[in-house]
Amino acid sequence: MRRRPLPTGAKGWRLCYDVNADGVCDAGSADDPNPIRLQVAVNSNVRLIGPASRIRFNPNGSLTASSFADFVATPGPGATPRWLVRFAASGALSVRKG
């Protein structure tokens, strides 16, 4: 699969490994691409509220933080339904409507 960078100035998600935790994706190769996944921003009507900082994972898949990270997703400001997305400290992900 060929990976293309996000367009300049585009918003979205970038999933990569950063061994030295300097906030920059480490160099990749054809056999070991980095960033691992790129995703442009979802529809501008979708609202995602959550922590402003990065979510960092340990090599075993657990969060580097000792607690959890919560996000709330809605189809727009004040709209319903809402979904609560929680990353537990273990790295487990749960999604609950409500």
Rank of each mutant, 00 (worst) to 15 (best):
A21G: 13
A52Y: 12
R56M: 05
A27D: 01
S67P: 01
R82F: 10
L6V: 03
P77K: 06
G76H: 01
V72W: 06
P59H: 05
D26C: 10
G78S: 07
A92F: 00
P81D: 09
L6M: 11
P81W: 00
I49C: 07
W13Q: 05
S44I: 02
P35E: 09
I55K: 04
G61W: 07
A10P: 02
T8C: 06
F57Q: 05
P33E: 02
V46N: 02
G12T: 08
V95E: 13
A88K: 07
R47Y: 05
R54E: 12
R37F: 03
I36L: 07
G50W: 00
A52F: 14
A79P: 07
F71K: 02
G9N: 11
R96G: 11
A65Q: 12
R54H: 08
L63I: 05
L63E: 04
G76L: 04
C25V: 01
G12A: 12
N20P: 14
P51W: 08
I49A: 11
G78P: 01
S90L: 14
G28M: 02
P35Y: 06
A41H: 01
T64I: 06
T80D: 00
M1N: 12
S90K: 03
R14K: 09
P5L: 12
W13I: 14
P81S: 00
G61V: 10
L15Q: 15
P51V: 11
L48S: 06
R86D: 02
G23I: 07
L15A: 10
T74R: 08
S44N: 06
Y17N: 04
R3L: 01
R54L: 02
P7F: 12
K11E: 03
V24W: 11
S94I: 03
N34C: 02
S53C: 13
S90P: 05
L6I: 13
R3M: 08
R82K: 10
P77Q: 11
D32E: 06
S66E: 15
G12R: 05
I36E: 10
S66Y: 06
D22E: 14
L48Y: 09
G28K: 00
S90H: 01
L84T: 12
Q39C: 06
L38I: 14
L6A: 10
A10T: 07
T64L: 10
A41D: 13
G98T: 03
G78V: 08
P5I: 09
P33Y: 13
A30L: 13
G28I: 09
S66H: 15
I49F: 04
